[in-house]
Design a protein around this nucleic acid. Structure first.
Lengths: 232, 232
DNA sequence: ACCGGCTGTTGAACTGAAGTCAACAACAAA
DNA sequence: TTTGTTGTTGACTTCAGTTCAACAGCCGGT
């Protein structure tokens, strides 16, 4: 009975109508959150950020618009959360279980796993890892964070003396190479995965070698022959 | 849509007030368009797409909001137009006047000019070439177009027999490498430009060599070639 | 000068989607 | 049952993008 009679937004329709699919269920925070993130990931893979309205998302999830704001403060936050989830998934999967294999084997393993993820997620990978909302600071941060993590893993496996500004840039560049190659690969699918793996692996070491070499001199380096990573 | 009988928006204030800066000037279409694009380029370099409102842009340009819509059908179109202008600028500058230099010299020249652009435009390059509005189809198209043009230039200088799916992917990847390296370079500025130029040049040919090699066999390729590039 | 016509320009109104909020319902504990 | 907590709702508010009819600068013809 509550005589709290406040404004009075008119009575609500009991909504007795039975909705075929999932009628309103009261889920736990974590469940619903996970459900929404998964949904967001799939939706944003197909349509761009602002081709999708909050109402679309709510409708697809079978919930009200307001509930979305109960879990995510803003549409953008929702997008970022979905992006972050995808990033985490990728990072976790590629963490690699190989401890003490040779550097070559480790790289090969990591690259292969990465490509497997790209192949499985396809559109999601392209839509979220590439592009994103763009200039948006938070989105850029997630992408930056992801690349930075990969960079860290590579650097961690390098002999400390080999590190230098140019090597840093070179590795950064290699990540760019690999992302671009991955996208081209999934988009065209005209090359066996093994060739991509080998190409990426070889170029990583090529880049590493070239960078350490050129760090010493500004000249195109005529004397030195080869010599992967070694003394400074 | 809403052709309601518009009664009478009330007379407009003569606005006799003298505006200090540039009072309303009647410009020609091309001039104003160019002015707006330049302005947009600089604005979007500093703040993200939706941190900037139409009103902000209009205010900065000293015009009314409505006029913007006289030149560009939508905010997004405006953004895309600015992006396209930047892309065209970059593509034009790097077209290279060297006709018959050696492949190496051509690449070096192109890379150097590209980096000069990146250095000059700094934020604009990063904000527009990277990111963009993201998932947006049109924006993606402009970026794709830009990369595709660069790819075309590289491919055009290759001996036809050398072309294959893997080489295509490799070159695509190299472009990704170079973009990432460029961004890292402008962001950190801890490496002399010459080193970046050399690194990029060497890796282009490394990638080319590796790709043509692996195209033949799935094996890590034991023997074979050395110098593919020859310029038709 | 006067009249048009063409076109750049404006301000206010309109629209639609993001974001807010008080009421409410499902469930658990008392 | 009663009460407390908290997931859930839908109408409402807000505000940035978009539309539009009126308007003003400028040229050519008379």
């Amino acid at each position: 009975m509550k005589s709290r009679a406040r404004p009075r937004p008119a009575a609500r329709p009991p909504a007795e109508a039975e909705k075929g699919p999932a009628a309103r269920a009261r889920l736990e925070v974590d469940e619903r959150r996970a459900q929404l993130l998964a949904l967001g990931l799939s939706i944003f893979s197909e349509r761009s950020y602002d081709e999708v309205s909050i109402d679309d998302i709510a409708r697809a999830a079978g919930i009200s618009k307001g509930l979305l704001y109960y879990y995510f403060p803003t549409k953008r936050d929702f997008y970022v959360a979905a992006l972050r989830a995808a990033s985490k998934e990728l990072l976790d999967e590629t963490l690699g279980t190989t401890k003490d294999a040779s550097p070559e084997a480790q790289v090969e393993q990591g690259v292969r796993t990465y490509l497997a993820y790209v192949e499985r997620r396809g559109a999601a990978y392209v839509a979220l890892m590439r592009g994103g909302i763009g200039s948006d600071p938070e989105v850029a941060a997630v992408l930056e964070e992801t690349r930075s993590t990969f960079l860290g893993r590579i650097v961690a496996a390098l002999p400390p003396e080999a590190m230098g500004p140019l090597v840093h840039t070179a590795m950064r560049g290699w990540i760019g190479f690999f992302e671009a190659a991955s996208i081209d690969w999934v988009a065209r699918r005209s090359v066996p995965i093994e060739q991509i793996v080998t190409l990426a692996k070889v170029l990583l070491f090529d880049a590493l070698r070239a960078a350490t070499e050129f760090s010493q001199t500004n000249e195109p380096a005529p004397p030195k022959k080869k010599r992967p990573a070694k003394a400074r």
